[in-house]
């Protein structure tokens, strides 16, 4: 072996096994990639607001954020031109939601329909994420209570306070499949302390499904359907709602058509009387405006 060959062998060997010298020729980009730490990538804004239409989506308001919701449902479209297709009548709910943390929120509301007060607590226990933690779905629990305060139709029979109370519990499981498309299912149980006739069940079980498809960055189309599993009254229909979300900065406007008059779970799941095929359709809207009450504490470096 000639000296020259030996020399080349040594040089090649040293170059191959000396990472420092190799590094010196490296691009900075490779170095920078090595520094980047793995992060959890949470999916956000699966729905524009915490409600799909009447019912909850799996989104929460942020921690320290208050959401004022003003919702209207006009009369049935089939009430004709004399009533301006329902616009002469409106039922309203004023609501106030607050995010205690980004996963826990509470809310109260008051509906003009049957003069009902309501409250809820919602805990989003799974957040959809990729990266360092992989969670294919989002999931939330919503528990509501409602108090009907309209004067009893027959004051002569005993009317207990407990008879005015309604409860619901709901599990929401969903996934944001793409930037534009989200779907969720909502098994729901509504408990009524008092029902009109003994044949009616106190507990109504329902399965809801809802989806949204974004049409543009700020406009989405939403649909929501609740199927009652143990419905006994033929006059009662399943709730079906279709609408648009329009987002403008701090506001979200939701414009929709629904056969439900009530805007709270006990009402739209179990008391929907309107029939789409009959034209018993309410036009309605929800306006949501958020206010940041407690700003985020920035991480100090």
């Amino acid at each position: 072996m000639s000296a020259l060959t030996k020399f080349f062998i040594i040089v090649i060997a040293v170059y191959t096994f000396n990472p420092i010298s190799l590094f010196a020729q490296d691009d900075l980009s490779a170095l920078i990639e090595g520094f980047e730490e793995p992060v959890i990538n949470y999916a956000s804004a699966a729905f524009k607001t915490t409600r799909v239409i009447n019912g909850h989506s799996f989104e929460n308001v942020g921690g320290g954020v208050m959401d004022v919701k003003i919702s209207h449902r006009f009369g049935f479209l089939n009430s004709g031109g004399y009533e301006l297709f329902g616009l002469d009548n409106a039922s309203i709910r004023i609501g106030l939601d607050y995010g205690i943390t980004k996963q826990l929120m509470v809310g109260i509301g008051r509906s003009s329909f049957e003069k009902t007060y309501d409250g809820f607590i919602k805990y989003k226990f799974f957040r959809q994420s990729t990266g360092e933690r992989n969670m294919p779905i989002a999931a939330a629990l919503v528990s509501t209570i409602a108090l009907k305060t309209i004067k009893p139709s027959d004051p002569d029979i005993p009317n207990y306070f407990s008879s005015r109370l309604y409860f619901s519990n709901q599990l929401i499981v969903g996934r944001k499949f793409s930037d534009a498309f989200t779907i969720q299912i909502m098994p729901t149980v509504v408990h009524r302390n008092l029902v009109a006739i003994s044949e009616e069940p106190n507990d109504v079980f329902a399965l809801g499904i809802a989806a949204r498809q974004k049409l543009s960055k700020r406009i989405a189309i939403n649909g929501e359907y609740y199927y009652q599993l143990n419905k006994s009254d033929p006059e009662i229909n399943n709730s079906l709602s279709l609408g648009f979300d329009i987002e403008t900065g701090g506001h979200v406007f939701q414009l929709h058509f629904t056969n439900s008059t009530s805007m709270i779970e006990k009402g739209f799941v179990t008391e929907t009387s309107g029939d789409w095929l009959n034209g018993d359709i309410h036009f309605g809207f929800n306006v949501s405006r958020v206010f940041t009450i407690v700003g985020k504490n920035r991480k100090k470096p």
Binding site: N41, K102, T292, G295, R298
Partner: peptide, 11 residues
């Protein structure tokens, strides 16, 4: 990382 920008308002 774009998602690591923190704003005062979460919305």
């Amino acid at each position: 990382l774009i998602k690591a920008f923190e704003f005062q308002k979460s919305l």
